[in-house]
Computed example of a mutant assay.
Amino acid sequence: MTTLIDPALRSTLGQALGLTGRTIVVTGANSGIGQALALGLVELGANVLGVARRAEGLAAVAEQAGPSFAYAIADVTDEAAVEAAMDRAVETFGGLHGVVANAGIAVVQPALDVSADDFRSVVDTNINGVFITARSGARRMTEGGSIVLTSSSFARRGFPDWSSYNASKAAVSMLAETLAVEWASRGVRVNAIGPTATLTPVNEALFADPGFTASVVAGIPAGRILDARELILPTAFLLSPLNEMVLGQTLMVDGGQTL
């Protein structure tokens, strides 16, 4: 994967943001947004522990990223597995300074038809899994750190057929606010990132439909969907230890969709 970070600028950017040598855990790192963030943060000089339910994508990231990337297999709804992954990050790289709680799923179906089990599954991954990940990371940030939760522009708009996803992402933004207030005294900052519709391998089939794509783009003033790589620098900004007064915010990277 080619990132947006010019090779000539990587070292300078990483140092300016204070990310060089810091250890960051990224969940959902085997594909899509999580993979882009994991690779981008490595390029900025961070050590990254990628987490996902399957090893295939993680192994490919490890091959590309080199020794600054390690990985662990875990379902974010399994607290014991997440705890073990956090321990692996500390053991491998000597500490923990940041967490990107990115793993999430979506069920796209009319609210009258979506099953209770499917709705519950989205909530379990997108809210409970994010909470488990954030709390597990915070427990190991003995010298403070930064946590970024992946919310969405859909948290602020009632898009039809996305009831479970929209509700879960709105909850993620509020979770960021609540944890930010609760953990500020520990030196642990919590914020969220709010991407608009983003092209990833998971949703390629959706965006292959010109009608669907046009309907989405119509609501984005910038006139296009987001490339996952465009989230690297906004996320790095939130992870930076230089931003001590940025707390509980959802940084929208949405081309103006929520304006």
Score class of each variant (00 low, 15 high):
G50M: 06
G50P: 02
G50N: 06
G50W: 01
G50R: 01
G50V: 06
G50C: 06
V51E: 06
V51Q: 05
V51A: 10
V51C: 10
V51R: 02
V51P: 05
A52E: 05
A52D: 14
A52M: 08
A52K: 04
R53P: 06
R53A: 07
R54N: 12
R54T: 14
R54A: 11
R54W: 01
R54C: 06
R54I: 08
A55R: 13
A55H: 07
A55L: 10
E56F: 01
E56H: 10
G57M: 07
G57P: 02
G57Y: 03
G57R: 06
G57A: 10
L58S: 07
L58Q: 08
L58G: 04
L58F: 12
L58R: 11
L58W: 11
L58P: 06
L58V: 11
A59H: 13
A59D: 15
A59G: 14
A59S: 14
A59I: 12
A60G: 09
A60E: 15
A60I: 07
A60P: 04
V61Q: 03
V61N: 03
V61D: 04
V61S: 03
V61W: 00
A62G: 12
A62H: 10
A62K: 11
A62T: 07
A62L: 05
A62S: 13
A62D: 12
E63H: 13
E63P: 00
E63L: 12
Q64Y: 03
Q64W: 01
Q64M: 12
Q64L: 15
Q64C: 05
Q64V: 15
Q64P: 00
A65E: 02
A65W: 03
A65Y: 02
A65V: 02
G66K: 07
G66T: 09
G66Q: 09
G66H: 09
P67Q: 10
P67H: 09
P67T: 10
S68C: 01
S68F: 00
S68Q: 13
S68L: 06
S68K: 13
S68I: 00
S68Y: 00
F69V: 03
F69T: 02
F69M: 03
A70P: 00
A70L: 00
A70S: 13
A70R: 11
A70N: 09
A70I: 00
Y71M: 05
Y71E: 05
Y71V: 07
Y71S: 12
Y71G: 02
A72V: 01
A72F: 01
A72Y: 01
A72N: 02
I73K: 09
I73T: 14
I73N: 05
I73E: 10
I73R: 11
A74G: 12
A74N: 10
A74C: 13
A74F: 04
A74I: 03
D75R: 04
D75F: 04
D75T: 10
D75Y: 05
D75E: 14
V76Y: 03
V76M: 07
V76G: 06
T77E: 07
T77S: 13
D78V: 11
D78K: 09
D78E: 14
D78L: 11
D78Y: 09
D78C: 12
D78I: 09
E79H: 13
E79A: 15
E79P: 08
E79L: 13
E79W: 03
A80Q: 15
A80G: 14
A80V: 14
A80I: 11
A80P: 14
A80T: 15
A80W: 12
A81V: 01
A81L: 08
A81P: 05
A81M: 08
A81S: 13
A81W: 01
A81R: 04
